[in-house]
Computed example of a mutant assay.
Amino acid sequence: MIETVIQTLFNEKVKLPNEIERFKDCLNDKDFLSVGATTYSLLKRQNKLHQTPDFFQNKLQEIYTDTLYKNIFIKNQTMLILNEFEKQRIEVIPLKGPLFTEKYFGDLGSRYSSDIDLLVKKKDVNKAAECIKQLGFHTEKEEIELHFHCGFYKEITNSPCPLAVELHWDLVKENTSNLDIEAFWSDSTRFQSTYQYVKELSDYHAFYMICLHGWRHNLDSLKYYLDIIQMIYRIALSLNFTRLINEAEYHQTKRRLVRTISLVYNQYPFLTEFKNFPYLAQNKGRGNHPKKKAIHKYLNFLDYQFLSYDSFAHRLRELVIWIFPSRNEIITQLGNRHKRLLIVNYFVLYKERLLNMWKVW
């Protein structure tokens, strides 16, 4: 049913089913609710909202309204930061977030944003961090070794969750590719005519970025699928897959992109009506989705974790890091369950992994 609804959002010829129970099943799926705002916005745009039951419309409208209000706030905070960066002459490119939503989804409330992601040049990271702190944000945690971003947060009145800002100087972890981040900068344009230092990615590099973002999360939610589907839908005519894969091969990100795009195309074949993907890997099924059998999910994880890299050295490096993660990586994986002694952390982590493997088999 969910796949039918998603197809309906992009194909006017596809009709929604009539069975009430199928709409109830959608609302009982947390993954579907995560894209409720997008579903509402696109169904309304296609004049298909009236084809759904009232309870379905009301729930989606509730999600959409909540998303819209949150995105208005996050956009306001984003613009405050961007204006300050402009004053400080710090070059910056907003990634994802409300500005991405407005440009590619056409509606501020149609895609949920939880934080603010900004790309800055590596030489400007310290200056940008100081600027963020002056705006009331605090350092989130220690920088993870070889990572490509650092985080900050600010407590929000009457909100249980703080607002997070991530400063990126790259899009993938160091020593896992030859990604040329300077190409993303050189191909960018001014965000608006009144700005000199605030830029926006080209459509091509925005798609490259959103695919890497989906891969990093192993496409474990519908929202990552919809990001890629919506971009293909919007920029199909200008999107050059040959250029993308050729450059990805040079950047050593080809496996990541082919894997990610293939997962999306195999799950939603109607995409070929907008743009054919000639590098499709047919054996790539749905990503780490809860409805997949446990064994398939585990094999999917192994494929993602160790076989997504173009270089054998990069695969070996990831294997070593997985076996012997840093303290910060352990904290990320175990959360509040981590102990002070590193050896105890390793014991707890390995125990959980073995238990998970046992459950699968």
Rank of each mutant, 00 (worst) to 15 (best):
L9P: 02
L9N: 07
L9M: 06
F10I: 10
F10D: 05
N11D: 13
E12V: 08
K15Q: 15
K15T: 15
E19F: 03
E19I: 14
E21W: 12
D25G: 07
N28C: 06
N28A: 08
N28R: 13
D31T: 13
F32M: 08
S34I: 04
V35I: 15
G36K: 05
T38R: 00
Y40C: 03
S41K: 08
S41D: 08
L43S: 07
K44V: 10
K44D: 14
Q46C: 03
N47W: 06
N47Y: 09
N47A: 08
K48Q: 10
K48C: 05
H50S: 14
Q51G: 05
D54K: 12
D54H: 09
Q57R: 15
Q57V: 12
Q57G: 05
K59E: 11
K59M: 07
L60A: 05
Q61R: 15
Q61S: 10
E62T: 15
E62S: 11
I63W: 02
I63G: 02
I63L: 07
Y64P: 00
T65Q: 12
D66Q: 14
D66I: 11
F73K: 09
F73D: 08
N76S: 13
N76Q: 13
T78F: 03
L82Q: 10
L82P: 02
K87P: 05
K87I: 14
Q88W: 10
Q88L: 04
R89A: 12
V92W: 06
V92Y: 07
V92G: 02
I93Q: 01
I93V: 12
I93K: 05
G97Q: 05
G97W: 02
G97H: 04
F100Q: 01
T101H: 02
T101A: 04
K103H: 10
K103T: 12
Y104W: 09
F105E: 08
F105C: 03
L108M: 07
Y112Q: 10
S113Q: 01
I116K: 04
D117K: 02
V120R: 05
K121P: 01
N126K: 15
K127R: 15
K127L: 08
K127C: 06
A128Q: 06
K133P: 02
L135Q: 13
G136K: 02
H138W: 11
H138K: 15
E142L: 03
E142F: 03
E142R: 11
I144P: 01
E145Q: 11
H147A: 09
F148V: 08
F148Y: 15
C150Y: 14
Y153L: 02
K154A: 07
E155I: 12
I156F: 07
I156D: 04
T157Q: 14
